[in-house]
Design a protein around this nucleic acid. Structure first.
Length: 754
DNA sequence: GTCCTCGCGTTTTTT
DNA sequence: ACGCGAGGAC
């Protein structure tokens, strides 16, 4: 069952028996192959007919790939517990919805709905939207939720501007609860609560799952981590696979600490490092590894490469982003002239705004390209969201966001007055939509009363269709007919003939629903409309790209984030400048994460990598003069060619260095004679190894305080205080160059300087 | 209600 | 540079 083509450590990872397992799988190390092989191995081991294996990923794409690969081996086998964290959680929650007071067809609200809810709340409170932009509020709420902080706790512990946000959090949650709706975070949080509260359910799953596999473990947030522990009996039977160096989603709650502390918390865990790179040339592997090794908190890994040495990584300095685009365009054409293809090449940048010059340059030269548009997806279109709202209010008659969305769309003569009346009614009595509208109808009387009554009846009928296991396409047709939605679109002539494209979207949506229904055997206990809505809510994929078929022969223009998990023969990493990568941000820039981002970008390349930086760049309407990215300084001479930026004496650019540090009393002489390597990281028992230097045990906590230390990147500093103990000893250090930082002692690579 | 103008802020993105 | 949202004018 274990494929022959695996190397020794890969095989070891695949066939590991018993106990927690951490597989460190750097870029290009054959991670996917190992994950799939291990899954197949586990199914073999624990039975293909049972639900004994839980495998979770972060993206639909990864989940789909797992399922497809499994299907190759057992075409008829559909493992029920392979999916994204969220889809698995939704499945479990629906199974036990009653226990937490939810109907089976609870709504999953998406980002658009969340935004709308927050805006409504901000509007109805005395707060100004200025200080409470929905995005900021939502990300705060998400932070609270995923770290297990309830609205009450948030209100108790927040001050200043956060106080108001905590109040919004409470109202937002109340509103969700009232409508029997969950947001994405709730899927994890509510399931966690359920498992904690209901011993029966907990042990049911704990016993069911012989083994749990988590992919991209470095991306877990606190909620997912908690969930994982619950399901895996404290991770006794778990395989986590990931790469700490590729953790680039901190801004959305991912915490690289989970993977880093895994061996600490589970000393009995096996750790396997896949250290052979199969993807890239030796130049690329060498350059990338030495760049990332300057990282502060990471497992030390040494990569070897099976590849040929290849051409050196090319550094190229340009005057302006237009020159940069031109340079890249010419190089792409050259590769093609040499027999390469467009689809094998990718231009990477830190932010979407950088893509413009490339789009122009490629257009001028007739280079075919594709961008992965972000927010302008199919499912953010008004007409699609309207129709979805109709479906949702039928599936879950308590879904108020959807009800209010469709209330006067198409216009049926309901104005602000009616809306307010309905809001009052809704607040007074939590009724299903049809009954609510009936009450409204009585309230209004007259002509608008009749309109309300008609809508009420339609809603009741729609809800019945859902209950009777009607399929989405019939429900859609029903609503299109009852509302005259198509006429409404056709009549609303907007500039640019967009009503035409809206009608086309509508038709596409209808086709999508039909495709969904085809050849599908629905569970008897699930409503088809519910399943349809859940799939859409959890995927948000454009129907146009089912991932099947040949990739068109085009150059990819991608942000580094979008490029994660992909690989190309030729990669152009552009805008390698200070304030671009690492990016300047309002809040404190997380240079560590930016470095990992740079690493992810570099390691996308198989055969060649060119890194470009400009002396000036127009950004946000202003032309700035730029400095080369500090990350370029960590590229080894022997692996690169071209315009190497000049080494600086200081590892950080001047503007990054804060005011002269408050120097604590110097203790005598300053000789770095005694240099002590201190790290608490256990030696890996894996085939390949990290840093061979033997290390003395960590200093006990009080020993550190007041010591002068030297850090490889931050330079000299003094330990101000220490907290935590053992492996979690955290030191607060005031560095001369960079101010106060908190470092985990075990990863800090500190030397004592006396 | 709707149109226009002014001012501000500006990453990364999945589920 | 540009888009979006708030707020004023009609």
């Amino acid at each position: 069952m274990i494929p022959d083509e695996l190397n020794a450590s890969q095989r070891e990872a695949v066939s590991h028996e018993g106990g927690p397992l951490l597989v460190l799988a750097p870029a290009g190390s054959g991670k996917t192959r190992v994950v799939i092989a291990r899954l197949l191995y586990l199914f073999d081991r624990y039975g293909w007919t049972d639900d004994r294996i839980l495998a979770v990923t972060f993206t639909r794409k990864a989940a789909r790939e797992m399922l497809q690969r499994i299907a190759v081996f057992r075409p008829s086998f559909r493992p029920p517990w392979v999916g994204t964290f969220h889809s698995v959680a939704a499945r479990m929650l629906r199974q036990h919805a009653g226990r937490i007071g939810l109907p089976k067809e609870f709504t999953i609200v998406d980002a658009g709905d969340q935004r709308q809810m927050i805006r409504d709340l901000v509007e109805s409170s005395a707060l100004s939207e200025r200080d409470h932009d929905p995005k900021g509020v939502l990300s705060r709420i998400s932070q609270w939720k995923t770290t297990g902080i309830s609205p009450d706790e948030a209100e108790k512990t927040s001050f200043g501007p956060f106080r108001a946000q905590a109040a919004l959090y409470r109202e937002y949650q109340e509103r969700l609860d009232l409508q029997k709706a969950l947001d994405f975070d709730d899927l994890l949080v509510r399931l966690t609560e359920l498992l904690q509260k209901e011993e029966e359910v907990r042990s049911f799953y704990q016993e069911q799952f012989e083994h749990i596999l988590v992919d991209e473990y470095q991306d877990t947030n606190a909620a997912q981590e908690t969930l994982l522990r619950l399901l895996s009996r404290d991770r006794k039977n778990v395989t986590v696979v990931g790469d700490d160096d590729q953790s680039i989603y901190r801004f959305r709650g991912a915490d690289v600490g989970h993977i880093l502390s895994f061996p600490k918390e589970y000393p009995q865990a096996r750790r396997i490092v896949l250290s052979m790179n199969y993807r890239s040339t030796r130049s690329i592997v060498g350059a990338a590894s030495s760049m990332i090794s300057a990282s502060l908190s990471r497992f030390r890994k040494e990569m070897s490469s099976t590849g040929r040495s290849g051409e050196p990584v090319l550094l190229k300095q340009l005057d302006h982003e237009r020159d940069e685009a031109r340079f890249v365009a010419e190089r792409i054409l050259k590769r093609v002239a040499e027999g390469g293809s467009f689809r094998d090449q990718a231009v990477l940048f830190r932010m979407n705004a950088q893509s413009q010059p490339f789009i122009r340059a490629f257009g001028d030269r007739g280079i075919p390209f594709q961008t992965r548009s972000g927010a302008d997806g199919f499912f953010t279109r008004k007409e699609i969201r309207d129709l979805l709202a109709y479906l949702r209010v039928c599936a879950n008659p308590f879904d108020r966001v959807s009800l209010f969305r469709i209330l006067n769309v198409p216009p049926r003569g309901f104005g602000d007055k009616t809306r307010q009346k309905l809001e009052h009614l809704s607040a007074e009595s939590p009724l299903p939509a049809s009954l609510l509208l009936e009450a409204l109808s009585r309230d209004l009387g007259g002509k608008s009363g009749e309109v309300a009554l008609r809508l009420s009846e339609d809603l009741a009928r729609g809800a019945t269709m859902v209950q009777d296991h009607g399929v989405p396409s019939s429900l859609l047709s029903f609503w299109l007919a009852r509302t005259g939605y198509e006429d409404y679109l056709a009549d609303s002539d907007e500039p640019g003939g967009s009503s035409r494209s809206r009608l086309e979207n509508l038709a596409e949506f209808l086709r999508m629903s039909e495709r969904f229904e085809q050849g599908k055997a629905f569970d008897k206990d699930r409503m088809p409309v519910g399943v349809f809505l859940e799939e859409l809510a959890l995927s948000q994929e454009d129907p146009g790209d089912p991932g099947a078929g040949e990739m068109p022969d085009r150059v990819s223009l991608l942000t580094i984030h979008q490029a994660k998990g992909l690989e190309f023969s030729h990669v152009y990493l552009t805008g390698a400048e200070e304030d671009v990568i690492p990016m300047k941000s309002r809040e404190r820039t997380d240079v560590e994460e930016e470095r990992r981002l740079f690493y992810v970008a570099m390691t996308r390349a198989r055969d060649s990598l060119a890194i470009t930086y400009c002396l000036t760049r127009q950004l946000f309407g202003r032309t700035d003069s730029q400095k080369p990215s500090r990350f370029l300084l960590d590229l080894p001479k022997e692996a690169v060619s071209g315009d190497r930026p000049v080494m600086r004496a200081v590892p950080f650019p001047a503007h990054d260095r804060p005011s002269p540090p408050a120097r604590p009393p110097e203790s005598g002489r300053q000789s770095p004679s005694r240099s002590l390597r201190v790290t608490g990281e256990p030696r890996p028992s894996s085939p390949v190894v990290s840093n061979p230097d033997p290390k003395p045990a960590a200093l006990p906590r009080p020993e550190w305080v007041g010591k002068s230390v030297v850090h490889p990147r931050f330079g000299k500093g003094v330990v101000e205080s220490a907290s935590g103990a053992g492996g979690d000893l955290e030191l607060t250090i005031r560095f001369e160059g960079t101010g106060v930082k908190k470092l985990l002692e075990k990863y800090s690579n500190l030397s004592l300087s006396e």
